Every structure is written in structure tokens, then in C-alpha cells.
Simulated scan of single mutants.
Amino acid sequence: MSQERRLEVLRAIVQDYVRTSEPVGSKALLDRHQLGVSAATVRNDMAALEDEGLIIAPHTSAGRIPTDAGYRIFVDRLQQVKPMSKAERAAIERFLAGAVDLDDVVARTTRLLAGLTQQVAVMQYPSLTRSSVRHIELVPVGGARLMVVLIVNTGRVEQRMVETGRDLSSEAELVAGLRNLVNEQAVGQPLTAVPGRLATVSERMAPEDRPLVEAVARALADATEESTEERVVLAGTANLARVGSDFPTTLSQVLEALEEHVVLLRLLQAVPTITEGDGDSVTVSIGAENPYAPLRTTSVVATAYGGAGNLGVVGPTRMDYGQAMVAVRAVAHYVTEILDE
């Protein structure tokens, strides 16, 4: 019973500190929360929490603030997160549904998340390696050059120019037939499986036409090499200035880290892939749990969307975790629906 009571005191300290940014004392806890115990009991509980490393005194005063470990216990015990209202969900759906293409979806998503949470919103472009093929178009562009246009299920479009080694100017029938065979084998398949599946297409072509199939297969294989193509978009960095006191000496380092997209990709790619039946999973990394030193004064709340990428928010450890988690989860849900259309 005393352990449960101490955790209730910890919850109250986290909530008050997130709201006020001021160290929380026992008197404030008794005034703001119905703890049902005496001031002496609260002081004893706070002392026990401090001994356990869950709260600390930032300076010589009666007030305490949560540590990273305290936030972690708070988040892990956050069993009930207040859901968004029907009006809020409708507003999200309307805002995202107005997007005209994938770039617009990503831009709208990051702006929306930054506005909802007042944190920095981060979104990874849908990953080609986790996408499936919607359509492949082959477009002769003059002479021996062929443009291979790949459209995946998330709406992402990639183009590759292929030198075929033969003049295609009068080969419209050949290109059309190859297009049909390629789509027959590729549509609905994971992109990473497509080059192998095109081997059967090559076998169905005349020997002199097989190099053309192989060139298309190489172009599609090249599209999966994303080491230089992975992109991440962020919005709301100005929100950090609003809580600059949470970064007394490291705000510039945080801002510099956020400019390093490789760092952001690593943070997002650390989010576990969500499997079927686990679509509401949200990952929270708090303070020192983040692997990149300049971001160890921040927390990251993230989730996967559409089976093809990750999105989330980055902010100070003094964050409204419940609100951030529900916003990230809701936005990811609607992004998934849009990309699956």
C-alpha cells in the first residue's frame, strides 16, 4: 500500500512539474491533489522517492522535480491516456485529407503534430524497403534511354533512367508488352522481392530482349538502396524556444542535433516495427535513454505508420507524455489510412 501511495505522489509531482515548470513541494501536493494522507506522510514518501532516484531537489528548497527514472515509471504506469475528442479527431482527418500528394501529406503531418503537442514533430518519409509496388511505368525518352517510374503503396514515386543499349524509338510494342509483364509480377509485392521476380519475366522474353528486362530489374534494385535517399522532415523547432529554461546550457546542442537528419533517422528507426494487432504501440525514449548525447535532455515519443515509416515528437523531458502519446498515435492512424487509399 505504501508503494502504491508513493507512486501516486510521484504521479502528482510529474503532473504538477509538467504544468508549472516549478519544483513541487509537499504543501502544493496536498493543496492540489486528494492524496488522503497527512503532510508528514507526503514528506516521508517524497524522501523515499528521492532515495530511489525518482525525484531530486534542483536546489536547496522544499521542492522536488522528477528524474529520467521518475518519468520512466510515470510513463510505464500511464495505463489510461485521455482520448481525443470526436471534434479533435475530425479536425485531424479533415486537415490531412486535404493533402494533394505524398510531400503534402508529410508536410501537413509534421505541422499538425507540432501544433497539437507544442513539440518538435519529426516524420520519416515512407521507406521503400518496407513498401509494396502499386505500379511500374516504362517510358521511352529517346534513343536507347528508358525511364523506369516506380509508384509504391504509400504514394512515393521514384524514377530511374536506364541506358538499354538499343534504340527504342520504334519499339513501342515491345515496351508495352514488357510493362504488362513487369506489373504482372510486381504489383502488390514487396519492393525488395521485385528484382528476383523479374527473373521469370526475363525467361519469357526473346534472348535478344532479356538485357532490357535485366536493365529494368537493376533500376528497381537500385531504388531499394536508400542509404542516400532516406529523408526526414521536421516542424516546430521554434517550440523549443518556448521552453528554453528546460535546456539551461544545451539548447544550442539540441538544435544542432535536430539539424542532423542522420541522427533523427536513427532515433526514428529505433522505433520497433509495429506488427498486425499492435497498431497502437507508441515508443517513449526519455532523457539518457536516447543514444545520442546532445539529445539526452530530450524525450522522443514515436510510432510507426503504414508499415513503411515512423513519426513522432521530440521535446524536453518535462513533457505532457499522455497528450503527446495520444496525438502521435492518432495522427499515425490517419496517415496510415490516407496512404492506404
Rank of each mutant, 00 (worst) to 15 (best):
L116P: 06
T117Q: 00
Q119H: 13
V120G: 01
A121N: 05
M123R: 07
M123K: 08
Q124A: 11
Q124C: 09
T129S: 08
T129E: 05
R130V: 09
R130F: 09
V133T: 00
I136A: 05
I136E: 01
P140H: 03
G142V: 07
G142S: 02
G143W: 10
G143L: 07
A144V: 08
M147N: 12
M147I: 11
L150R: 05
V152T: 10
N153H: 14
T154Q: 04
V157P: 10
V157Y: 03
Q159M: 13
V162I: 02
E163I: 07
E163C: 07
T164Y: 01
G165M: 04
S169L: 06
S170C: 00
E171L: 05
E171C: 00
E173N: 11
V175A: 03
L178V: 10
L178G: 03
L178Q: 04
V182K: 06
E184Q: 15
E184S: 14
Q185H: 03
Q185C: 05
V187P: 00
V187H: 04
G188S: 09
Q189P: 08
P190A: 00
P190H: 01
A193Q: 10
P195C: 08
A199T: 15
A199V: 15
T200E: 11
T200R: 13
S202D: 04
S202P: 11
M205E: 11
A206Q: 15
P207A: 14
P207W: 07
R210H: 04
P211W: 10
P211D: 09
L212P: 07
L212N: 06
L212G: 06
A217W: 03
A217I: 04
A219V: 04
A219T: 04
L220T: 07
A221T: 14
A221E: 13
T224D: 00
E226T: 13
S227Y: 08
T228Y: 10
E230A: 13
E230D: 13
R231S: 10
R231T: 13
V233E: 02
L234T: 09
A238K: 06
A238V: 13
L240H: 03
R242A: 14
R242F: 14
V243C: 03
G244Y: 11
G244M: 12
G244W: 13
S245F: 12
D246E: 15
F247N: 08
T249Y: 11
T249E: 02
T250C: 13
Q253P: 09
V254D: 06
L255N: 12
L258D: 05
L258F: 09
E260N: 15
E260H: 15
E260Y: 11
V262I: 15
V263P: 04
